[in-house]
Design a protein around this nucleic acid. Sequence first.
RNA 1: AGGGGUAUAGCCAAAUGGUAAGGCAGCAGUUUUUGGUACUGUGUAUUGUAGGUUCGAAUCCUUCUACCCCUGCCA
Length: 561
Amino acid sequence: MSDSKETYKGSNFIRNIIIKDLEEGKNEGRVHTRFPPEPNGYLHIGHAKSICLNFGMAEEFGGKCNLRFDDTNPLKEDTEYVESIRRDVKWLGFDWEDREYFASDYFGKFYEYAVQLVKDGYAYVDDLTAEEIRQYRGSLTEAGKESPFRNRSAEENLGLLERMRKGEFKDGEKVLRAKIDMSSPNINMRDPVIYRIAHAEHHNTGGEWCIYPMYDFAHGLEDSIEGITHSLCTLEFEDHRPLYDWFLEKLGVYHPQQIEFARLNLTNTVMSKRKLLKLVQDKYVNGWDDPRMPTIAGLRRRGFTPESIRMFTDIIGVSKSNSIIEYSLLENCLRDDLNKRAHRRMAVLDPLKMVIVNYPEGQEELLEAENNPENEADGKRMIPFGRELYIEREDFMENPPKKYFRLSPGGEIRLKHAYYVKCVDVIKDADGNVTEVHCTYDPASRGGWTEDGRKVKGTSHWVSAKHAVKCEVRMYDNLFTKENPDDVEEGKDFTANINPESLKITECWGEPALAEAVEFTSFQFMRQGYFVADPDTTKEKPVFNRTVSLKDSWAKEQQKS
RNA sequence: AGGGGUAUAGCCAAAUGGUAAGGCAGCAGUUUUUGGUACUGUGUAUUGUAGGUUCGAAUCCUUCUACCCCUGCCA
């Protein structure tokens, strides 16, 4: 799974650290990572970066990578998300074998740790309200002040904690806090809450608990419990690290090494779970797997392949500087992969009728076409040809500009896999719009080639009018018009930048084989782009999503003038 | 003087004191039965700024600047 992929992998600071650790014999030569999502939303391309990094490092150094659900907040989590996360990680091509864990597996252990902290005088039960705790915390520039409940005895705290656990208090009535330093310049160290009361059903533990650990308490400890050697996380947790270190040290347990890296940002894309949730809930898109979403499920439905996403994460590298990757780089990786694998088909999106005037009426023939010029093993198929065809409207111009080498009056082009045709007449309607082009074909050019070495520069795709199947085509574009979707006027949010033309539903006329397309199969519609059969597809009504267009140097050429 | 980070070409990014890799984009070509693909060539980078140390600095020291993150009983 990693031959050509290797060439994209550059050096990065995390790999360098691991190599050094290995050389120094740390962790008995083990490399053990983990991917720790909270099951409160669908995974997106940013998570893919983390997944590829964590599983990739483990694989590269003969180590292991756990899948662990960080489900410490029952109010936000759901098994629907657990299932989608499993599916997405698997689809990306990674295997956590039997190492699927949940933070909730460790609730008992966390509680013991909390008791130990209380006994050792490192944690206390606080009666302050949430609002009061906030006020007592101080600000970025001012120290906080200590809670009046901060100096309760260990015995009293122990009793209170036990009663919290038994459900004797209401939500928010009390919390357990770490006793650290209310004047620390690092706000995370100002006696952070480590347990809160929530009489809520947990997706995994049901009604067993009514107190739940905070992420900051759980995270370092679960890594410790699992024997994680390299705990890779994003930059915003950098100043939480001293807190994790504090718990680990006070509890005297195994200490994983946390290394922070920069999140992935993409142009014309929002990545935060909050914003993605809003897009789904407010119906700006049709669900988490809408092909315009940067979710793994969305990308999959759009026609992305796991290989292309992995190639992308290899190419972009890993560092600590905030960066924004051009979306086109992702598309490039996709094209690169699909070019090698997608079978070619012909489909006409904007049809113009072509009549081959010297082709006998009623005659039909089958012409041979390779499925993929990049791979002979993909075989061939037969395509019906007849007197009446459809070609792409933009492949004909009555008064062509310079450098245009498609069809024009008197000109000759090649119909891909078929014949050379010469335009002999143009039919128009009353308004002067071209409705048909009449051509003659050269029978000696069968297959799209002649022995006389004649130069025919233009090649058009086509479809037999009689045999073509009508398909629905969903043309997707960026969901946001601006590179930075958050670039909005005062008082507006990112939804103001949603591209009103991010989805255009239209139809195309495809060669007959397209009616048989199986969902999630990608094709290159020749000279157009890559398209994938949507799950909505049926034999009666095939449905394709445009994954990405082909590069179009002619369009670029035209833009210059 | 709150704390923590980051600055290398349009976008990423390597280089750990030895004289600035690579990819993408752009530009110019070659090949081509996809204006696709493939291939070739192509960048005066004052390495954010100003100093310093050194035979030698993107790397070490100091100054300044810009940007990102942190005041959830979210993760």
